[in-house]
Write a protein that binds this DNA or RNA. Structure first.
Ligand SMILES: NC(=O)c1ccc[n+]([C@@H]2O[C@H](COP(=O)([O-])OP(=O)(O)OC[C@H]3O[C@@H](n4cnc5c(N)ncnc54)[C@H](O)[C@@H]3O)[C@@H](O)[C@H]2O)c1
Ligand SMILES: NC(=O)c1ccc[n+]([C@@H]2O[C@H](COP(=O)([O-])OP(=O)(O)OC[C@H]3O[C@@H](n4cnc5c(N)ncnc54)[C@H](O)[C@@H]3O)[C@@H](O)[C@H]2O)c1
Lengths: 210, 210
DNA sequence: ATAACTTTGTTAATTATTTCACAAAATATA
DNA sequence: TATATTTTGTGAAATAATTAACAAAGTTAT
């Protein structure tokens, strides 16, 4: 539950909206003009009611008897998610994972992009990966303020993650995507999302044991 | 809700159990012998009641007036999650991300390990990354059957992910950890977990707009 | 133009998950 | 030994999220 209204959307709704956007963009590429919630349901493993309800929290985007126009829904979803403006992202830790992240950046994805990378190792500093300059972590605060960056990806080793987090918070970062397998300690107003591959594998293993 | 009982645990409970395990292992390393749910709460941003209830679905592991012994809780959590046996994992797609995954394997993590890697590119086949041999994807089914592997990580490009998934399912794989930004179509009995960095970034951006 | 379909948007009902509240158990203190 | 303190484990209550049901709106066929 995100707002305090009686009838409001869940954090899961937001996660699903991002999935909808991604898939509607693909539908456009595939030449699909209009889809119904029923078709979406089969494509995305989400019930048609769920899909319609998720959208209904933000407005009326479909046409009864017809469905949803892919073009206009992409526009609306971007507006809802705040992707009608460009978002710069910082990355700290240009090791194996960090490098993979930088290299796999899809430059057709215009709205969200890692534009500043940082490392503490002399071997990496001032190198360029996929066109992105690697700065000395020493200059993190200065560059974050300068570029007005609000989001940071952390891919440093476990035992440096909290120190980097503290620096990020101190520098005005408001949201963190964390790959280190540790729960970060942050002030209440900072958003953190953890991506932990081993936890995820363990979750799958649990279900295999049933 | 996982079982059909009146009072049963949620999928989120399982995800948290994996986080508890990870952090209790760390506590042991740090020489901590006993912790209370209150202390855990501060460490992991989970309410003490949540922590206690999550465990209570599986048994009584604490000592009233005292707390939880780290050693014995790790043992119990491993048993609950099915990690008291070794799990072999396959990886398909040894590109940038796949390579990072192979290289970052921590060999002290004894229970879950990628032991077979596959690619379709001649340049990669029969090479070795961090001691793991890269097989031709052609031999996937044979090797999976041979090694009795039940879990597969997919890190191939978007437009190959469904084909690899179909091959995996056909080969008897029961759980998939998918990094490609696409919702995979699988039979009901196959477990899929998606890790999508861009969806996660977009979710964070949504909350920055509030 | 009307009737038969299709599909959305939304309220209400249901189901799921978390939080609360407190008894039971263990320990520490006096 | 008795009392105060701590902390667990757990039903009951509260909150949250999903699903169901259906009226409203649009389309297609006759
Ligand atoms: N590689 C993966 O596939 C993978 C998967 C899951 C999780 N992770 C996690 O992601 C993190 C990174 O993994 P990796 O394999 O890329 O490690 P890595 O050792 O290859 O890279 C870490 C990088 O961080 C830099 N670094 C260290 N301390 C720093 C600091 N204080 N400030 C700035 N930079 C700093 C190092 O110089 C290095 O370049 C780890 O926490 C790991 O557990 C990685
Ligand atoms: N690199 C990242 O950090 C990152 C982050 C998020 C998501 N992803 C996703 O992970 C996937 C891989 O990304 P990447 O950057 O490593 O790509 P990549 O192109 O570097 O690597 C893909 C690898 O898959 C292999 N491959 C292709 N088709 C195959 C098939 N049918 N069978 C076996 N192997 C096959 C290729 O030969 C290549 O080695 C993509 O779907 C990407 O969107 C990557």
């Amino acid at each position: 539950m995100i707002c305090t209204d009686k009838n409001c959307f869940s954090p899961e709704t937001v996660r699903r909206l991002a999935v909808y956007l991604q898939n509607f963009e693909r539908l456009i590429k595939n030449g699909v003009d209009v889809v119904s919630s029923g078709q979406i349901s089969k494509l995305l493993n989400v019930s048609p009611e769920q899909f319609r309800k998720d959208l209904s929290y933000f407005g009326e985007f479909g046409k009864r008897g017809v469905g949803y126009q892919t073009e206009s829904l992409v526009y609306e979803l971007k507006k809802i998610l705040g992707l009608n403006q460009a978002w710069q992202v910082a990355l700290v830790g240009v090791g194996r994972l960090g490098c993979a992240l930088l290299n796999s950046q899809d430059f057709s994805e215009l709205n969200v992009r890692i534009t500043a990378a940082f490392d503490s190792d002399k071997k990496n500093i001032d190198k360029t990966v996929n066109g992105i300059h690697i700065h000395d972590i020493i200059n993190f605060k200065k560059i974050i303020k300068q570029k007005k960056i609000r989001i940071c990806v952390i891919s440093v080793p476990l035992d440096h993650a909290q120190a980097v987090t503290d620096l990020a918070v101190e520098s005005g970062i408001e949201a963190i995507l964390n790959f280190a397998p540790v729960i970060l300690n942050v002030p209440e107003n900072i958003h953190v999302s953890n991506m932990d591959i081993y936890c995820e594998l363990e979750r799958l293993i649990f279900f295999l044991n049933k």
